Amino acid sequence: MRYGWFIFPLLLCNLSWGQMNHPKASPFARIEQEIGLSKITVEYSRPSAKGRTLFGNQPNGAPGLVPYGRIWRVGANESTKITFSTNVIIGDNSLEKGTYALYAFPNENKWEIVFHKNLTHWGDGRKNYDPNEDVLRIALVPTEVKDFQESFLISFDDINHNETFMNWNWGTTQISIPIHFDTKAIMKLQIADKLSNPPSAQTYYEIARYYQEQNIHTNEAKEYVERAIELGGDTYYFHRVRSLILADLKMFDEAITAAKISMKLAEKEGKDEFVRLNQDNIAYWKALSITKQ
């Protein structure tokens, strides 16, 4: 107890000089989105509107939170970072895979979106920002949406194997950035590599399914799925894909037969969803077969 008077001041000193971890006004967010065989990662902070004028000028003429014509970090705190796992096309412009800082120059009727190679700036870089370090700039028209977005949001929508839109929403303002990956070229290389070795039944099936989903190389897809069945035996998903390919080739009677096989196999494994899918396809193809006759 005799040392208590000495320990207590030390504790106070540590509390006084230690840095407190407190909640952030603009919390950090990290999102990942797969597009085909590629991945996009975005790291940013999310400021909130809190009743403030966001873009342009306030009603009294004073600048809003993000004045027109001035660089914006696309969020808060550190500069927003975006990473592409493979080469990408932004609008009509090619961009190499890698990590970039995202900036924007908002205006009332047009925004300039910037992919910048210098990742060291805090926020917008202020006087250290150098436009010569821009890798890509594109111009986009902002749109006004009905639903008010309180906290700044970056999201991805309209996703398929090859492309998506990266949406920025804050207040009633939305920016949509078209992003495209050449997934077909990536798949072509992968398929060639897989076929150069003795392929398994699963390999043949996956190639056939990809071709069917993309509506390409339909005759080759038929050969591959039939090879999968020869090597791997009867499965509901092998015959399911074969039925879809046969229907794509307008061979509706054969497609119905394949779907019935798939349905019976799915029933045995308790795959109710695939039972229903096959039933729907059989009914649809029967109607098409009658029309064809």
Score class of each variant (00 low, 15 high):
residue 16 S to N: 14
residue 199 P to K: 00
residue 82 I to Q: 11
residue 217 H to D: 13
residue 237 Y to L: 09
residue 154 I to D: 06
residue 162 N to C: 05
residue 129 Y to C: 07
residue 113 I to G: 01
residue 282 I to S: 13
residue 264 K to G: 12
residue 252 F to Y: 15
residue 177 I to R: 00
residue 274 F to V: 02
residue 206 E to D: 14
residue 179 I to D: 07
residue 9 P to S: 12
residue 82 I to E: 12
residue 50 K to S: 13
residue 179 I to M: 04
residue 185 A to T: 14
residue 13 C to H: 07
residue 228 A to V: 01
residue 134 D to L: 03
residue 158 D to I: 01
residue 4 G to I: 14
residue 276 R to T: 11
residue 235 T to P: 03
residue 93 N to I: 00
residue 52 R to A: 08
residue 137 R to T: 12
residue 239 H to T: 07
residue 103 Y to T: 01
residue 54 L to C: 09
residue 41 T to P: 10
residue 141 V to P: 06
residue 13 C to Q: 11
residue 195 L to H: 05
residue 111 W to V: 03
residue 143 T to N: 12
residue 190 Q to L: 14
residue 115 F to K: 00
residue 108 E to T: 02
residue 129 Y to G: 05
residue 271 K to L: 05
residue 245 I to A: 05
residue 202 Q to D: 14
residue 238 F to G: 01
residue 221 A to M: 04
residue 15 L to T: 06
residue 130 D to C: 10
residue 107 N to Y: 02
residue 289 S to K: 14
residue 10 L to H: 08
residue 9 P to N: 11
residue 241 V to K: 01
residue 258 A to E: 10
residue 248 D to T: 11
residue 257 T to Y: 09
residue 78 E to D: 15
residue 167 N to Q: 04
residue 233 G to E: 08
residue 23 P to H: 02
residue 77 N to D: 15
residue 159 I to V: 10
